[in-house]
């Protein structure tokens, strides 16, 4: 008994086993996230369609890429990729510009600042499908929407934005939700900038614009990268707002990759092709994820070096 107490001052070999406490969690995560992906790869080589139960099966080595071939020779694919990129890039650019402007506005002491911040983060917290219902029915509806009412003063009658400008409508609603996200992260970046740095720069004669260009912006770079890459990853997966406001239409004008997968899987029940589309989505996301992890690693190095 006494000897155990003495030994416990030095790390016991038994404690080394504690590193395996992470195993159940990691195992769970592998099963839930990696197994379906492997199954998706297999499905993408089959011609399985749930509407034709007999069609279930691996297509053979010579035929296994048929789903990919079909997708790549179909114009729908290029429209869907185009829509996905237009949507993602537009939202990221808009939210970056406005999110940065709002972060700068909030990064100064003024009465009501806490209230302004609280109001500003609210759109991001809102359940996306509820936000979509709000915009579709309460704000934009051609006869009962608040915005349509005010438009009639400008001679625009029974205007329904999701029909007239489908993609810009989706971009606008998504931007409304994501501006707070970018703002919050850039505000955290601005607030981590030491006052002493700004004072030193102003003593050295730096004024507003040059201070922003040479002191604030370089400091913000890491925050900007993290915010925009994370946002990109999540906007690439956007589904709910499109589902509610435009259902991918008119035609396929607002069909992005997740919505196309949803259509292939749950209205055409084409397991093979939906899985192949899914692989494209994973590849696209992984490109951004790799960039994101690189930024994280790089900033870790900067931190340890400093």
């Amino acid at each position: 008994m006494a000897s155990t107490t003495l030994n416990s001052k030095t790390p016991k070999p038994k404690l080394e086993l504690r590193k395996y406490l992470s195993s159940p969690g990691l195992l769970f995560l592998i099963i839930v996230t990696q197994v379906p992906f492997i199954v998706a790869i297999y499905f993408s080589f089959t011609n399985w369609n749930l509407l034709r139960p007999t069609s279930k099966g691996f297509m053979g080595v010579s035929q296994m890429f048929r789903n990919y071939g079909r997708i790549l020779t179909d114009n729908t694919f290029y429209s869907v990729i185009w829509n996905t990129l237009v949507l993602t890039i537009s939202v990221v650019v808009i939210t970056f510009v406005l999110g940065l402007a709002l972060a700068l506005l909030l990064n100064r002491p003024f009465p009501g600042r806490a209230l302004a911040r609280t109001l500003l983060i609210s759109p991001f917290l809102m359940m996306p499908v509820a936000a979509a219902v709000l915009w579709k029915n309460v704000m934009l509806d051609s006869s009962t929407g608040l915005i349509s009412y005010y438009l009639h003063f400008f001679g625009v009658n029974s205007f329904y934005a999701p029909q007239a400008f489908p993609m810009p409508t989706i971009i606008a609603v998504l931007s409304w939700q994501w501006i707070p996200f970018v703002m919050l992260i850039l505000l955290a970046g601005l607030q981590s900038l030491p006052d002493s740095t700004l004072e030193a720069a102003s003593i050295d004669g730096a004024t507003g614009p040059s201070m922003f260009r040479f002191i604030v912006l370089p400091h913000l770079q890491r925050f900007i990268e993290i915010a925009l890459l994370l946002e990109t990853i999540f906007i690439l997966s956007e589904f709910g707002i499109i589902f509610v406001i435009t259902t991918g239409g008119p035609g396929i004008q607002t069909t992005n990759l997740p919505y196309q997968i949803f259509l292939e899987a749950f209205s055409r029940w084409n397991v093979g092709r939906a899985s192949a589309y899914g692989i494209f989505a994973v590849v696209l996301a992984n490109i951004i994820i790799v960039l994101f992890l690189r930024v994280l690693n790089k900033s870790d190095e900067v931190e340890t070096a400093a």
Partner: peptide
């Protein structure tokens, strides 16, 4: 690297695996 891998799983597109998850 385990921590980075854990984070990367959060960013995988759910649409990419919805079909196998549905079937499973």
């Amino acid at each position: 690297s385990s921590m980075l891998w854990i984070m990367s799983t959060r960013m995988l597109p759910p649409a990419g695996v919805i079909v196998p998850i549905y079937v499973l």
